[in-house]
């Protein structure tokens, strides 16, 4: 079964088209990276997938359910960081993780074990620090910790390594891979082609609100192939408009 699905999703903000029939799917145990230029529609697609935006057309499904009306049992298996994470600046790192575990439906008896994600993301030295005092990179790791504290089987991450140092990037990469190896479906958006090549099983290229192709993660010269794909899409659009 497809764990994460966007099927022919379309949406516009006033007259500006953000999504133009975007389709993609992520299976259990698979890491799919979505790459594209700024404004390509990546974050809008992720907002649709997390139920934050009802699209004008098309279908979104998380573990087979509409994300805008997800049942509690399904929501317990879903995690995401799109934009601002599930982190309160007034709470400490440990309190934020505990609150996230509660909101994700973990029972009290599992809360102590949930704290393991703090060590997994190397946040131990800041356990008692208020989130508002964290550096940008540590705050980003805390956001990811809060999204995965319940070991979700479907995970959506928007630019998860944008503020991280090289060690943080490796930690997040290992976390994402371990979740996928346990059977989770992971959809990651990123600008960093080299980084996604290391973590993703598939790389889909989004441009002008739709998927314009896929890149082989292991192949060479990823950047050149990415720009080639974007250029081809623009050329085809221009030819279509002229005709």
């Amino acid at each position: 079964m497809t764990a994460l699905l966007l099927d022919a999703v379309g949406h516009a903000f006033r007259r500006r088209t953000a999504l133009a029939g975007l389709s993609l799917e992520v299976s259990p145990g698979e890491v799919v990276a979505m790459v594209g230029l700024n404004g390509a529609g990546k974050t809008t697609a992720l907002r649709v997938l997390t139920g934050r935006l009802r699209p004008a057309s098309g279908t979104a499904r998380v573990l087979g359910e509409d994300p805008t009306s997800m049942a509690m049992r399904t929501a317990r298996r879903f995690g995401h960081v799109v934009g601002t994470p599930l982190v309160s600046p007034d709470l400490t790192v440990a309190e934020n993780v505990r609150v996230a575990a509660l909101l994700h439906g973990l029972p009290d008896r599992e809360l102590p074990a949930a704290g393991a994600v703090i060590d997994a993301l190397d946040l131990g030295p800041w356990t008692g620090a208020p989130a508002r005092t964290l550096s940008l990179g540590n705050a980003q790791r805390l956001g990811i910790a809060c999204a995965v504290v319940h070991r979700p089987v479907a995970l959506v991450l928007d630019e998860p390594t944008s503020a991280l140092d090289p060690r943080g990037v490796v930690l997040v990469r290992e976390l994402v891979r371990s979740l996928a190896d346990d059977g989770a479906a992971v959809l990651v958006s990123s600008h960093h082609l080299d980084e996604v090549a290391r973590v993703a099983d598939r790389v889909v290229v989004v441009h002008a609100g739709r998927v314009v192709g896929e890149l082989e993660p292991g192949g060479s010269d990823l950047e050149r192939r990415f720009f080639g794909m974007v250029l081809d899409a623009d050329t085809a659009d221009a030819a279509g408009t002229a005709a």
């Binding site: 997390t50 929501a75 995401h80 799109v82 934009g83 601002t84 599930l86 982190v87 439906g105 809060c146």
Partner: peptide, 14 residues
């Protein structure tokens, strides 16, 4: 205003 409300979607707690 700051976007934190977006993180309250897709949670087990409605």
């Amino acid at each position: 205003a700051d976007g934190r409300a977006g993180a309250l979607f897709g949670l087990a707690t409605p």
